[in-house]
């Protein structure tokens, strides 16, 4: 019984991190229908920025979240406005996919150039602390990463639901033409959305860097992971990312425990295929689809 509970608890903690890592990808896909293949590299850049800032300022890596998010927001805004948007306007959505893939390759190699291919870790003072709840063991750094993830996802959900910015994003995603007729600058909104997504990807990079050793080549994994989470949970909403992420985390740990530690990836892709066949829009559907 304890083993099942421990496995479920481990799955939830892992899933929370997966969810935060995927929410930016989900938002961009939901609002712009752009598949951002450079999502993973932004996650990894977030981890590197946190590593540098936490050492430079001698603060807890979680305290660098505002700075990392601000820097990546600016990066994401500029990237969308002056690169992705041009590709979409002048060619097609497919071109944006190729563009983001190319950017991911370039950024990955720039990271290798700057930081070397060696793996790095972010180790806050509590990196190796654990605590017990009953007979269950929890790793403090993973739990803090989960807590960070939940707080940020709730803030994003609140911002999308209750703020003017959120209303504009939702309106633009649901009916681009109508939104523009109402005076919304769609390009600006797209760039803002991309900026917010990049900021959240960066924040997830901090959580991931605290939990896992990271290196530039890891970016491909986080893009793929985001894709699976979004397919499972549904597009465009933090809730979808959370459901997809938690589900993926639990499936991962349950498979590892009861089928074999070599099989989580196989199960993950099996579920992905089944979801695409049975419910292609994900468990919670497309958050912006009703008005299309």
């Amino acid at each position: 019984m304890n083993l099942i509970l421990q496995t479920l608890a481990d799955g939830l903690v892992l899933g929370g991190i997966y969810a935060l890592a995927a929410v930016g990808f989900s938002l961009i896909f939901g609002v712009m229908q752009v598949i951002n293949l450079s999502h993973g590299v932004i996650v990894v850049i977030g981890a590197y920025l946190a590593l540098i800032l936490s050492r430079l300022l001698a603060v807890d890596p979680l305290l660098t979240i505002p700075l990392v998010m601000a820097a990546l927001f600016v990066f994401g805004y500029a990237y969308q406005r002056w690169l992705v948007q041009l590709a979409v306007e002048r060619s097609s959505l497919l071109a944006s996919m190729l563009l983001t893939f190319g950017v991911a390759l370039m950024l990955r190699n720039i990271l290798v150039w700057i930081f070397s291919p060696d793996f790095k870790t972010i180790s806050p003072p509590y990196a190796f602390v654990h605590f017990h709840l009953g007979e269950l063991t929890f790793d403090l750094v993973r739990v803090s990463a989960l807590a960070t993830s939940l707080v940020l996802l709730c803030l994003l959900a609140a911002a999308l639901h209750w703020t003017r910015f959120g209303r504009i994003v939702r309106a633009t995603a649901q009916q681009n033409l109508a939104a523009r007729l109402c005076g919304v600058d769609a390009r600006h909104v797209y760039a803002l959305t991309f900026g917010v997504s990049a900021a959240f990807a960066g924040a997830s990079g901090i959580a991931i860097g605290m939990v896992l050793p990271f290196a530039p080549p890891d970016e491909a994994f986080w893009t793929l992971n985001a894709f699976v989470v979004v397919t499972l949970g549904g597009v465009g909403s933090p809730a979808g990312a959370l459901v997809g992420g938690l589900l993926l985390g639990i499936v991962n740990t349950l498979t590892a425990q009861y089928v074999g530690p070599a099989f989580p990836n196989a199960t993950m892709f099996l579920i992905l295929v089944l979801m695409l066949l049975v419910r292609p829009s994900g468990l919670l559907g497309n958050a912006f689809s009703p008005s299309r």
Binding site: L3, V13, L14, P261, F263
Partner: peptide, 20 residues
């Protein structure tokens, strides 16, 4: 004997089994 996938992101299940 615990076989992990080629890309590993979590070993909590294996460690739970080892603790047991």
């Amino acid at each position: 004997t615990y076989e992990l996938p080629e890309k590993v992101t979590d070993v909590s299940s294996v460690l739970a089994a080892i603790r047991a």
